[in-house]
């Protein structure tokens, strides 16, 4: 299993053609206390960069973009009642959705963990 990051601070953990998407701990920290998460419908087809979810904190409302194209297969319903999970465990229990990746070559444009860390340090 490998993990990739976008410049907009989403991560995707990839296992074959299955992906799990969330926002990075850096993003969760920048947002502050998350108070609301809006998740997509299961079965929705998304292109890379489409708005996949909305995350609202005490500071701001932000879109979460799909790191790659594919179909939503599962959403983390727990976040609707417990949005604080995003702050507590952004890269674990605070995942947003699972998807079937349509074209795994789209992963090539994303950053790996080391590159992403470097990217965040430069911000």
């Amino acid at each position: 299993m490998s993990i990739y990051f976008t410049e907009d601070h989403e991560w995707i953990k990839v296992d074959g053609d299955k992906g799990t998407v969330g926002i990075s701990p850096y993003a969760a920290k920048q947002l502050g206390d998350v108070v609301y998460v809006e998740l997509p419908e299961i079965g929705r087809d998304m292109a890379k960069g489409d708005e996949a979810a909305v995350v609202e904190s005490v500071k701001a409302a932000s879109e979460v973009y799909s790191p790659v194209g594919g179909e939503v297969t599962e959403v983390n319903e727990k976040l609707e009642d417990a949005p604080e999970t995003v702050n507590a465990s952004a890269d674990g229990d605070g995942w947003f959705l699972k998807m079937t990746i349509a074209d795994s070559s789209e992963l090539e444009s994303l950053m790996d963990e080391a590159k992403y860390k470097e990217y965040c340090d430069g911000l």
Partner: peptide, 9 residues
């Protein structure tokens, strides 16, 4: 409880 981000508690 989280301690990062914008502290509001």
């Amino acid at each position: 409880m989280k301690t990062e981000g914008r502290p509001t508690s």
